[in-house]
Amino acid sequence: MTQWFVLYCREWLELVRSYKLIWVPIVFILLGASQPITTYFLPEILASAGNLPEGTTFEFPVPTAVEVLAQTLGQFGTLGVLVVALSSMGAISGERVSGTASMILVKPVSYGAFVTSKWAAMLTLSTISFAMGYGAAWYYTMALFEAVGWREVGGSLLLFALWLGFVGTLTILFSSLLRSAAAAAFSALAVSVLLSLSASMLPNAFAWSPGNLSKLAASFVMNHTAEGLWLVVLVTFCAMAAALTASAAVLRKRPSLDAA
């Protein structure tokens, strides 16, 4: 356990050195804050965009506060997922190419501990960043629209953080399978897009799929509850555990890329 903790601290040092601990939270906060603000100023933005006949008046249905939060989640679903995948893409492949991985793994360190320490650091970073970004969105929604209860916000936060963590886990898995970091990020993004697409096209056949998580988070903030939530959460946890096991197994087979 102490050994695992040392590895985890090393990952934190890496997050600081690569400035991820600074830029990822800032990007999430900016993403979260911009959605309520743009929605609030949308009539003015359209009006000042010009080339409209004189005297045109807009009658926009003012979105409710929970709708704004759901839209923010949609924003995180595209750009946030992209940032998570891109920021953790080199987690294992980078260290394998540079030889750090083989240097650590000749020491009596288990492959599982090596992978899970990276995974835990990724999970901490993405969850903290997303919570800060969603908190900023919540703050601006409260200030510009109306109050939203903490239960809806908390529940949807946990669900969506799980989705981000799942995408990050996929990135780590592909990062141990593939040599190139960019290919790992691309594969993880492709799989996550396929999962969400299949879940929204065939909602009955894929009711269990982790691809439902972002949709569930949005429906949780709108309706206080989401159907079939626990099954999806359970499947996601199992899939994450399986991905980590597979990733450790791949690493055991090919600790360095020189042989491959």
Partner: peptide, 19 residues
């Protein structure tokens, strides 16, 4: 309303430039 967002964006830009 806009101040904190602009300040944060400026901060990110400055950090990126320094790095």
């Amino acid at each position: 309303i806009l101040g904190p967002v602009l300040a944060l964006q400026l901060l990110l830009m400055i950090i990126a430039l320094v790095v």
